[in-house]
Design a protein around this nucleic acid. Structure first.
Length: 485
DNA sequence: CGGCTTTGACCCGCGC
DNA sequence: GCGCGGGTCAAAGCCG
């Protein structure tokens, strides 16, 4: 990394020299002109090399600081992970003797509206849940490709094989002989649902996936019919969703998701999928308490958990993401409410050739909003690259492991190098943005840039580390730039 | 013509 | 055992 920094710094000096040379270039330069130019060039080279040396020293110091920070964070992560496993072990020991397996705690260290008393045990549970969430957000929600891991917690893997299998499971008579605890837990896990409340005038909320309606029912206590949808992105995807308008407020659309996708999901669906998976994972990782319903807020979204509203139904846990109110709208990126409310039931946006996400995702619908965010990102980065060579060198050093070798040949000259570099940078920027988006780590696309160093600890995967280093480098570069100005 | 929605019928679990 | 309600199936119709 440091070698690259030095190379880029040398390039910087050479480029400056070339620019100056071109400035004073006349069609037929005389010998005196040439001699003057050479002296000028040497002087400039000396002065620029000394300033470059200072910059290099600063960069080195920053580099050391970042290294130390990374080490510290890795240590913290390890200790946190070991604590987490310890707590899980303790929890499993406690739960063996517990008689209330169906209640779920979602008190993530915040005061819940329904109750405020916390005994020692509850505090432990809260800690565990919080750490669980942290770990999950880092381990399973960091990448699209990892999403499946987290959602597998939501549904029984055997349940995912086909929708027919899912139906079989659903229709399986209760007189099955095996009623061991594990089976019950699996059933409980399979039944976990995530309900999303959002204001939407359209029949359904756009969430990026393709759905096919397969049924409709008028339910008791709500004149609005409940519609049943099945995911049609893959023919055997077991994911279902129910859509029903709230009786209290007809403008509120309640969408309940069940199951996990067994196929790559579109870019625009990753946020919803990650959110529901995180919510479900959070729900299922919760422990038994005596509180029937709790609420919390994660990433600016309101989460609340409860048992199924209808007492006739088996009491499987449902977690609700309330996106109707935006109490912390300043910090939250209310993804779903930002879509136009007159969206069609199953919108099919024109596909673009852009593919900024993981290789799993291909040529799917890409919203205009994504485009503007990414364009904004692109513009900002382009400006930073073109205007600040130190930023360029730092970014290059940071993302070179991510984007591979530059396509520019050694003798191609600085312009081409800059172009390929910019291309690589854009690629890396979009990749990192995609990571940031899919992991739901930030409420805005730039959040990852702004507070990158605080997030490094939550990502322990190699690709995430690359992203983190990219963030760190960009933060550093921006700092340097600000320092100059 | 293929894919989707609509809608009545059916299955199943649960409470009384 | 019966009725109720949630969930699903599948035929018919609609649409691009």
């Amino acid at each position: 990394m440091e070698v690259l920094l030095m190379n880029m710094a040398d390039d910087h000096a050479v480029k400056q020299e070339e620019n100056i040379t071109q400035e004073g270039c006349s069609p037929e330069p005389s010998k005196t002109d040439i001699g003057r130019k050479v002296r000028k060039t040497v002087d400039l080279k000396l002065s620029s090399s000394s300033s470059t040396h200072d910059e290099l020293e600063t960069a080195k110091e920053e580099n050391e600081r970042l290294k130390m920070m990374l080490e510290q964070i890795q240590e913290n992560y390890k200790s946190l992970q070991s604590r987490f496993f310890e707590i899980i072990k303790q929890e499993s020991a406690i739960e063996e003797g517990s008689e209330e397996p169906e209640l779920v705690s979602l008190s993530l260290g915040r005061s819940s509206p329904t109750g405020s008393k916390k005994d020692d045990k509850k505090t432990t549970i809260c800690k565990k849940t919080e750490e669980d969430d942290h770990n999950k957000s880092g381990l399973t929600l960091g990448l699209d490709s990892k999403f499946q891991l987290s959602t597998e917690i939501v549904s029984n893997p055997s349940h995912e094989n086909s929708s027919k299998d899912a139906n079989k499971v659903q229709k399986r008579p209760s007189s099955d002989e095996d009623h061991e605890e594990g089976v019950e837990q699996k059933s409980q896990v399979k039944r976990a649902r995530v309900s999303v409340r959002t204001r939407c005038d359209a029949p359904t909320m756009y969430d990026g996936c393709q759905w096919r309606k397969y049924g409709q029912k008028i339910s008791i206590g709500n004149p609005c019919p409940r519609a049943y949808y099945r995911c049609t992105v893959a023919p055997d995807c077991p994911v279902r969703k129910q859509v029903q308008r709230s009786f209290e407020d007809m403008s509120i659309l309640v969408t309940t998701y069940e199951g996990s996708h067994n196929h790559p999901i579109p870019v625009s669906a990753t946020t919803m999928a990650s959110t529901t998976a995180a919510a479900a994972s959070m729900l299922l990782s919760g422990s038994s308490t005596s509180q029937p319903a709790l609420s919390t807020e994660i990433n600016g979204l309101n989460f609340s958990s409860s048992l199924h509203e209808n007492s006739r139904l088996p009491s499987y846990p449902t977690i609700t993401l309330d996106l109707t109110a935006s109490p912390s709208s300043s910090s939250s990126f209310n993804y779903f409410n930002r879509f136009p409310t007159n969206c069609p039931a199953t919108p099919r946006f024109p596909s673009t050739n852009l593919n900024f996400s993981s290789p799993l995702v291909s040529n799917e619908s890409f919203t205009q909003e994504h485009y503007f965010y990414q364009k904004s990102l692109t513009d900002t980065l382009t400006k930073a690259i073109t205007s600040d060579p130190s930023f360029r060198s730092l970014i290059s050093a940071a993302i070179s492991p991510m984007v591979g070798h530059s396509s520019a040949k050694p003798g191609d000259g600085t312009d081409q190098r800059g172009d390929s570099f910019s291309q690589n940078l854009m690629e890396a920027a979009f990749n990192s943005q995609s990571l940031n988006d899919s992991s739901l780590r930030g409420s805005s696309y730039f959040k990852g840039f702004e507070s990158s160093s605080s997030r490094i600890g939550s990502s322990n995967q190699s690709s995430s580390l690359s992203f983190s280093s990219f963030n760190a480098a960009s933060t550093l570069a921006f700092d340097n730039k600000q320092g100059k100005n």
